[in-house]
Nucleic acid binder design. Sequence first.
DNA 1: GCGCTTCTTGAAAACGTTTCAACGACGGCG
DNA 2: CGCCGTCGTTGAAACGTTTTCAAGAAGCGC
Lengths: 335, 335
Amino acid sequence: MSSVSIKEVATRAGVSPGTVSNVLNWPDKVAESTRARVEEAIRDLGFVRHGSASSLRAGHSRTLGLSVIDIGNPFFTDVAAGVEDVASERGYAVILGNSSGEFLKEERNLLVFAEQRVRGVLITPAGANLTKIDQLKKRGISVVLVSHPAEHADQCSVAVNDIAGGSLAVSHLLSTGAERIAYVSGPHTIRQGADRLIGAERALSAAGRDPGEALQEIAMSAMNTRSGQQAAEKLISEGRLPDAVFCANDLLALGMLRGLLQAGVRVPQDVSLIGYDDIDFASASTVSLSSIRQPTHRLGRVATELLLDECDNPGSHAHQQIMFQPELVIRESTR
Amino acid sequence: MSSVSIKEVATRAGVSPGTVSNVLNWPDKVAESTRARVEEAIRDLGFVRHGSASSLRAGHSRTLGLSVIDIGNPFFTDVAAGVEDVASERGYAVILGNSSGEFLKEERNLLVFAEQRVRGVLITPAGANLTKIDQLKKRGISVVLVSHPAEHADQCSVAVNDIAGGSLAVSHLLSTGAERIAYVSGPHTIRQGADRLIGAERALSAAGRDPGEALQEIAMSAMNTRSGQQAAEKLISEGRLPDAVFCANDLLALGMLRGLLQAGVRVPQDVSLIGYDDIDFASASTVSLSSIRQPTHRLGRVATELLLDECDNPGSHAHQQIMFQPELVIRESTR
DNA sequence: GCGCTTCTTGAAAACGTTTCAACGACGGCG
DNA sequence: CGCCGTCGTTGAAACGTTTTCAAGAAGCGC
């Protein structure tokens, strides 16, 4: 019930509170023998440092905020796992916020982060509310954009080239002989979806096709399997099936696959299908899913390393906009 | 950079700091007109309450700790989403810890929670380290067990009857005519796996079979798709295939499915297959997967409600051990 | 043994809130 | 007209750390 304070540890070890604090934070500053005595007292009393008091006085906490668009998407959980790895290696705790793609929830998450005075924030923005992010930075909280290239050089970001990814996907579909392609994405506010579309159109133009003719765009309200299946039903009810479908993420693609197969459409014989992210389940699905692979876990790791570098060396830190390249993974769904 | 304190808000609004605090925490206590003035000052200055200072003084924070076994498992992300829902409704932030099933990581997570002086902890224990949990409770931090029935009445827990689930799965397999059944699980330290095995054995006994004869147990080191596929390879290399496979979770089952199909084993004609959790991907997989459904999201919600009730009404709170019943979902893999 | 340097240690002042006892103003009531 | 609740507000004292600075101890060459 009653928690042990640094003072009680001090009396027990026969030193002053200041010394205990030094043992905790600057162990080198204190003589071997006293340190041992203090550490023993800490163990005996079961003392646990009071994070709030500590960060109040020190002016900064050892927590990071992570705001993602969809915690149900394995892509983001992989990223989160990467973040968590680095954070816990370096003694940071991660506060998780799920925006569900909603502007308001994202804003609320950022408020919570600000209140907690997190050391830094990792965020995959769910909209274009970059002003809120600027406000955070004015408060002295570093921000790294994840899976979203920074627009200015005053900011770190770690992303994967979505335009290239879109091109990769569509070029591949074209190479399998597809003429008419459907592109299934989420809300237009999601930047990833928009960029992948741009890439898709570029690939078509480069192949001498007219994107307006060859590409049918279907925007769903969410990017999960349910929406994917609905998109399939929509395609089928429209009668004229495309030769190939490119889904903006694997959840959509898996739903699409299921929807198509249920309606008796063969994949890839009747329609070929490609997703995006190469989540674990893409290969586990029986008509295994071609996809665009991103270095997901790495994204989280690198973003966190960048963030912590910015926090620890505010002077020498150079902002970086890191852009990974995506990779085409061909499986049965496009063969 | 410089953050605005309550004092500056006070001077600007022409009141004392105490009044500003009242506006923040007990709005009813302060007169309409002053409240408006203070709120305006807050907006003008962009004041954000300092969570650390607040919880230092108040003695409790508005954060919850959540420790899960595998953030990569959709089961846990669903639970986490439920937790997040309730937490953010009530103004709490969630600190996420992933134990990866490792005892040490779990311990470290709990330490972080203790340092942050979280209001309460939600945990799916990765082992039998319930002593650590007792230590937390001695510190005045409430703990609710998730997906793990409490052993004593002095503790809240929310779980789903895993023994019943195991029985459900195996009874169903028997009803499809299976004689020899393989049970694929993770490490023996994971309680869920052990309970599901007990249920499986009970179902066999109830049907007049000898569990020792009819049930082959395969314990993998992890509970993901990769391990599932390895288990399939193991089964196949052993030559004599069982009639049915029961996997302790859907990730294992999906991996198993893929492994079997790759080797030319037909599901369900040659081997029928059932998983556990009924994650979203179970139905999206093409040989759709029979599974045992748990009210996952609900689990998270209820656990969090219980936890917050315990925090807010420490006097009147009655510990509850809630046990949901699982549900059999039959799909193609057992037809 | 004295003065010097080098290490350690201790005392006290923050950090930004919340809380609580006390105070002033305002009416209503006797 | 004075007394007494009530309601709003104030000011100061915590909460448990970290940090700064000065003083004390210990070691060393002269």
